[in-house]
Amino acid sequence: MLILSRRMALAGLGALVACGPAAAADWPQKPVTVIVPQAAGNSPDVLCRIITDKLSRALGQQFVVDNRPGAANVVGMQSAARAANDGYTFVFATSAALVTNPYTIKNLSYDPLKDFVPVAMVAKSHHLLLVNPNVKANSLAELIALEKEKPGSLSVAVDGPRNISGLIAQAINKQAGTKMVLVPYNTISNAVQDSISGRTPVTIQSASVVEPFIKDGSLRAIAVAGNERISTHPDVPAIAEMLKSVELQGWFMVMAPVGTPADILDRMSKAIAAAIAEPDVKERAPGLGFELAKGEPISPSGAKAFLDAQYAYTGTVIKSLGIEPN
């Protein structure tokens, strides 16, 4: 706390020195708010705080994290959509808020493509398909074969049928013709516990959460959700190697209210690129389960291209699963 207030005093001092007329070149002139549509302490929040900490130092103004959790990101996204587009409000948006909600929530109160402009892609998070070690399957193919012997016998622990790991499970069921039963958990720890004890022999979890359980052998990773293998588990094949187009992923993108001056977006995206290139951020991200963005997607135009592609792709997957917005 002492450290915190000292830093603030320094930031204040810096601001006193740097006065001048308000123009995009002088941005930021006052503290910048970054809305996180998730509760304080969730993994997107932690990542956001690591990055805003760097931004505060680099740009000489306090970047304040404003947690607006609730209603599957809707509360935070809605308040960000209504915020002034003067370059002093940004939102740390999740893939759920940007590309899943439009297809699962009726009368969504914000439009991800029209109310916001992308600033920078920040990170992806990876999901793994894991089994309890007693399950006699060492690969996705063997798991599917096992399930087909007795359809409906395997239970899979997920975060809910309309959330990312639930969607992945349903996509596998649909493409492989299996009938795994989805068991919804809203706390990750309970899901992991039930998979370790074998009640739900299969689970789909964010890679960071299950890392220790893979290490001590209480869970076995058999596939990576997405179309490519990941650096931390190079020998675990991607689902897409067997089932085409199960490429659902979680990711995070900084967005601004539409109409925010382009040069501010540019400066912000460059600052974010610099922040995520710092060695201690790079070092911490894998532990939190994030793969930091590289290259083109960190720019506003690259982020836009990525968002548009994901928006369309997720839509086709969700519609093909027969999920209706409600």
Partner: peptide, 25 residues
Amino acid sequence: DLLNLTIPMLPDALMDLFPEGWSQK
């Protein structure tokens, strides 16, 4: 100041009265 919670403290009109460049704190 101490707990650093994000609660709006001052109205914009009052903040404009302060000289340019003052920090919120």
